[in-house]
């Protein structure tokens, strides 16, 4: 909707998310649907609430019954 705010986030050099397992920063490629934490290997599903902000949707691996 045109009523929402978007625009580049000041102060970053790219798009990133924080790993919820180890709190390391994970670089996210544009339009990526999945990322892997370079530190602990946890894989996350990614979604884009705005064109330049990525968020974790859930964990891909490591699901316990």
């Amino acid at each position: 909707m045109s009523s929402v705010k978007s625009g580049p986030y000041k102060g970053t050099h790219g798009v990133e998310v924080r790993c919820l397992e180890c709190l390391a920063r994970i670089d996210v490629a544009p339009n990526a649907k999945e990322v892997e934490c370079p530190n602990c290997g946890t894989k996350y599903l990614i979604y884009w609430p705005t064109p330049d902000i990525a968020k974790i949707k859930g964990v891909v691996e490591e699901r316990l019954p």
Binding site: K5, L20, K55, K57, G58
Partner: peptide, 21 residues
Amino acid sequence: KTASLFSVEGSLMQYNPTNTT
């Protein structure tokens, strides 16, 4: 950045981080 996100997702913004954690 928080406001950019919050103004789009609202308080639902907290769901994925807390659920995934």
